[in-house]
Simulated assay, not measured.
Amino acid sequence: MADGVEVFKEQFPSLESYWRSIILFGRNVASYKFALAKSLLEIAQTGKTSISLRELAEPYSRHLREHVARAPKQATSQSSRFIQACKDFNDGSISYDTMIDTTVSLGFNNVIDAFHVVGQKEIPISFYEKDYQSGYKRIILTDEVYKLLETPYPENFTEEAESRWNLVETAWELGVSRNLLNVKYDEQSQLFFVDPSFRRKDVTSARSALNGYQKGKCFYCFDDITVSDDSDNTCDVDHFFPHTLQQFMPDINLDGVWNLVLACPDCNRGLMGKFALVPATRYLERLHRRNEFLISSHHPLRETIIQQTGNTETERAAFLRMVDQRAIDYLVHRWATPEKALATF
C-alpha cells in the first residue's frame, strides 16, 4: 500500500480531505496547529476575511489557554515563552493585554508558515494567505475555508481537531513513549482512554477521533454522518467484527481501535442493518485501508493499532484475514448494503 498520507490526500482529493490531512497527519512538535485550525473555523463563521494577528490572537490564545489549564505540556520542547505566557495568564500573574502582546510576538512564529505543510510539502490549496506587507501583519481567509462550512455537518471539523489535540497532548502529558501508550475503548461511555500504571485517563470521544479518517462518511454506505450528540443522525461506534464473538475469541481484543468503525444508524441497527453479522469481504479491504490511514498519523492511535494487529502492513493484513475466517466460522452469514454515495476511502 502507498504511504497512507498520500493515499488519503490523492486518491479522492476533496476540500475536506485536504483539511483533514492537515489535522490528522504529520509529526506534531507543538499543539499550535490545532489551535489555529479551531480559530480559523471560528472566525470563518463570522464572515470576516481579513484578520490581523492581534485579532487572531484572541481565539488562538484562548484555545491554547484552555488546554494548558488541563494539560500544561503543549510541546515537545523543554520550554516555550508563549506557552509560559498562557500559563501565567491562567495563574493571574500577567494581564490580558500582556498575554495578547506575547501571542502576537511569539505565538505565530512558525505555525502560520507551517500550517499547510503535510509530510514534506504544502498541500495544493490554501485556507488562508499570509500578508505581512508594510509592517501590518494579517492573514486573509480564502474561499476554501468558507466552503468547509457549507459541507454536511461542518461542526465535525472542530470536534476532530479537538479530538486529535487531546490524543497528542495525552502522550506528552503522561511522558510515555508512544510505543508503550496503549489507547483502549470503553463501549459504555464511547470514550478512548489510557491506563498507565492502572490510572485511567479518559482521552477523547471515539466518534470524534475516528471520523476524520473516514472522511465524515459512514464506513459501509458512505452516507454523511455527524459526531454531534444532539442529532438524529449521530453515528454509531460499530464493532466491525461483532462484539458477540469475544466469548469465542478471548485471544483477540475486539474492543481494539483496529476493529471500531463509525456507521450510520441505518447500517448499524436499521431494518436491514448489520447487527451481529460479519461484513462482506469487500469491507475487509476497506477496514485495512482505514487502519493504514490511522497508522500514517502519529500519537497514539498509530502505535495502538500496530500493537494490536502487527508491525508491518503484511502482518496486519494477515491478522485481519485470520480474524475474518474465525468470525465467519462462528457466525456463518455475511452482510452488505448498497452504497448511498461514491466511495471516498
Rank of each mutant, 00 (worst) to 15 (best):
E10Y: 09
F12Y: 13
S17V: 10
Y18N: 10
Y18R: 11
I23Q: 10
L24S: 05
R27I: 06
A30E: 15
K33F: 07
L40W: 09
I43C: 08
L56C: 09
Y60Q: 04
R62E: 03
L64G: 01
R65K: 12
V68L: 01
A69T: 09
R70T: 03
A71T: 12
A71L: 13
Q74R: 08
S77R: 07
A85I: 10
K87H: 15
F89R: 15
G92R: 10
S93D: 11
I94L: 08
I94Y: 04
S95R: 06
S95E: 11
V104K: 13
S105R: 10
F108Q: 06
F108C: 03
N109R: 12
N109H: 01
I112Y: 02
I112F: 07
F115S: 04
V117E: 14
V117K: 14
Q120E: 06
I125Y: 08
E129N: 11
E129M: 05
Y136D: 15
Y136W: 01
I140W: 15
D143C: 06
E144W: 09
K147V: 09
K147F: 12
L148V: 09
E150L: 15
F157P: 10
T158G: 09
E159K: 13
E160Q: 10
E162C: 11
R164C: 07
N166G: 05
T170P: 00
W172Q: 05
L174E: 06
V176R: 11
L181V: 07
Y185S: 09
E187H: 04
Q188I: 08
Q188E: 14
F193R: 03
F193G: 08
V194A: 05
D202E: 14
V203W: 13
R207M: 08
R207D: 03
A209W: 05
L210M: 08
K215P: 00
C218L: 05
I225N: 09
V227M: 03
D230A: 10
S231K: 15
H239R: 03
H239N: 02
F241M: 03
P242E: 12
H243F: 08
F248K: 13
M249H: 02
M249I: 07
P250D: 07
L254E: 03
L254H: 04
G256A: 04
G256Y: 05
C264E: 10
P265K: 12
C267A: 03
N268M: 08
N268F: 00
G270K: 07
G273V: 10
K274I: 00
L277C: 12
L277P: 06
P279M: 04
T281K: 13
R282A: 08
L284A: 05
E285S: 04
H288Q: 14
R289S: 08
R289D: 05
R289W: 05
N291P: 15
N291G: 13
L294K: 01
S296E: 13
L301W: 11
R302K: 11
R302H: 14
E303N: 11
I305F: 01
I305Y: 03
Q308T: 06
Q308S: 10
G310L: 07
G310A: 12
T314N: 12
E315W: 05
R316E: 01
R316G: 00
R316M: 00
F319M: 11
R321A: 01
D324R: 01
R326F: 04
Y330G: 00
W335G: 07
E339R: 14
A341E: 08
